[in-house]
Design a binder for these strands. Structure first.
Lengths: 229, 229
DNA sequence: CGTCGCTTTGATCTAAATCAAGTTGAGTGG
DNA sequence: CCACTCAACTTGATTTAGATCAAAGCGACG
C-alpha cells in the first residue's frame, strides 16, 4: 500500500535535516554527481513547502503523490502538476519555490540540497545539462496544460487527464488515482461536480469502467484520444 | 516605426541562412560565447517556425513582437506568450519547437544556431547556466499563466494582461499594444468580444484611457492590481 | 473618399458553475 | 465483526459568466 512508511523514514510534516538516514544517489542524476539523498515521509495532505518559501531542497518521489499549486488570495487554487513515483519536483534556479507542494497521499521522497546540486552543475556540464532538460520537460507540460486550460471543453480536459494518468500510473490496464475529485478539478480548471459528471458520462458510454471511484480502467483509449486532440 | 526593416536585413518569411549579414553577439549571452548572430526580418503575420518543426535556431527580438502558440485540430488556438524586444524565444533542449511562432507585426530578430549554443553550453558552465535560467523564466511565466487560465475571471485576466504589458512595453506611461483583440483573447483563454467588453468597462470606470484601440494609458494601476491578485 | 479589417456593442444562448440533496464506502470504535 | 460516521462522490435543479451570433462604428490605407 502506498500509505505505508519505511522503517528508515520519519513521518512528520517538515524535514529536520540531520536526523535522517542517507539513501541512494538521486536517480536521473545518479552517477553524475555523488550527491547524498535523504529519505523522508509526509502524511496525506502534509505541506512539503509553501509558495515563495526558500528552495532549500530538491525532491524525488519514492512512493506516493504530490500536487504543486498556486493560490489566489480568496482560496481559488490551480494545481500545476501532479508528481508521481520517480518524478523530481521543487527544482528551481532561483532561491524560492514558485508553487507550493503538498502530499496527495502518504508520500516518501528523497531530497538533496539545492546548493549541492547547483554546485555540481557549476563544475559538471552533464549535471548542468540534466537540470536544463528537467526544467524543459516541466515547461513542455505547462505549455500543453495552458492549451488545455485556455481552450479545451470540460470533456476534453477530463479525457486528456485520463490519458495522462493512464500513461503515468496504469498497472495491468488499471489506474488507481491517488487524488480526489476536487484535486482533479483544480488541476483541470473545473469544479469537482463537472469532473464527476464527465467521468459518469464516460462510464455510461462504456469508455471507462469503475471499481471504486478512484479505480478506473480505460476501455476505449481511442475514443479518449479523439476527444483529446 | 516598428514596421521598418534595416538596410542589412532581408524581409521574406523564412530565413535562408548564408544570405545574411552577421550581427552582434546575442545579448544576455554576450561575451559568454562568441556566437555569430544573423539578423532577419519577418512581415506581420509571417510564420517564423511551426509546431514540431526542427529547432534549428534560437531567436532574440530586436524590434517588433512575436506570438508563440499551440493549435487544436479544429483551429482553436492558445497563445503561450508574447515576445517583445530583447526577449529570447525558440529555445529548446530537444530538437523540435513545441509551439509555433509568428510575427505579430513586422519584426526583426537575431538568430543563432541552436547547435552552436548547445556546443558552447557543453564546454562553458556559464552558458549552460544561462540557458537554464532562461528556461526557468519561461516556466515561471507559464505557471502564472496556468493560474490565470484555470482560475481567474475574464476581468481578472484582462487586468493581469494590462499590468503585464504595462510593465513590459509602457513608455512614458503609455502602451502601444502590437496585437489585436483576437490575439489577446487567445492569450487569455477568452473571445475577442469578451476582451473588448472588459476593456470598455475599464475605460468607462476611468481605470484606463484609450487613444486609438491599441494605445492605452493606465490611470489606476492599483485598481488593476486589486483585480489581479 | 471608398473599402476592408478591426473593434465595439447588443441580443441571445449555453456550458459549466453553483446550490442542494442524496448515496457510497472507507475507516473507527464499540 | 458490525454499526456508525464522515468525507468523498454522484446526481439533480437552477443560475450565470462568457460564448456565440449579429450588426454597426471607426479608422488606416490604397
Amino acid at each position: 500500500m502506498l500509505t505505508q512508511s519505511t522503517s528508515l523514514s520519519v513521518s512528520i510534516n517538515r524535514p529536520t535535516p540531520g536526523a535522517f538516514v542517507p539513501s541512494k544517489p538521486f536517480s536521473g542524476l545518479a552517477g553524475l554527481a555523488g550527491l547524498i539523498a535523504t529519505e523522508f515521509t509526509y502524511r496525506k495532505d502534509g505541506e512539503i513547502y509553501g509558495e515563495d518559501e526558500p528552495a532549500e531542497y530538491i525532491y524525488q518521489i519514492v512512493r506516493g503523490a504530490v500536487r504543486t499549486y498556486k493560490l489566489l488570495s480568496d482560496g481559488r487554487r490551480q494545481i500545476g502538476a501532479f508528481h508521481l513515483p520517480g518524478d523530481v519536483f521543487g527544482l528551481e534556479s532561483g532561491t524560492k519555490h514558485r508553487l507550493a507542494a503538498e502530499a496527495v497521499i502518504d508520500t516518501t521522497v528523497r531530497l538533496v540540497k539545492r546548493r549541492s546540486l547547483e554546485q555540481a552543475a557549476g563544475t559538471d556540464v552533464q549535471v548542468a545539462h540534466k537540470l536544463w532538460t528537467m526544467t524543459t520537460d516541466d515547461l513542455k507540460h505547462a505549455e500543453e496544460h495552458m492549451l488545455l486550460l485556455g481552450r479545451k471543453s470540460a470533456m476534453e480536459r477530463v479525457a486528456t487527464f485520463l490519458l495522462e494518468m493512464d500513461r503515468r500510473l496504469a498497472v495491468a490496464g488499471m489506474m488507481a488515482l491517488p487524488m480526489c475529485r476536487r484535486d482533479i478539478g483544480d488541476y483541470l480548471g473545473l469544479t469537482l461536480e463537472t469532473v464527476s459528471r464527465a467521468l459518469s458520462q464516460l462510464n455510461d458510454e462504456g469508455v471507462l469502467g469503475f471499481s471504486g471511484a478512484r479505480q478506473i480502467v480505460l476501455r476505449n483509449r481511442q475514443r479518449l484520444r479523439n476527444m483529446d486532440i
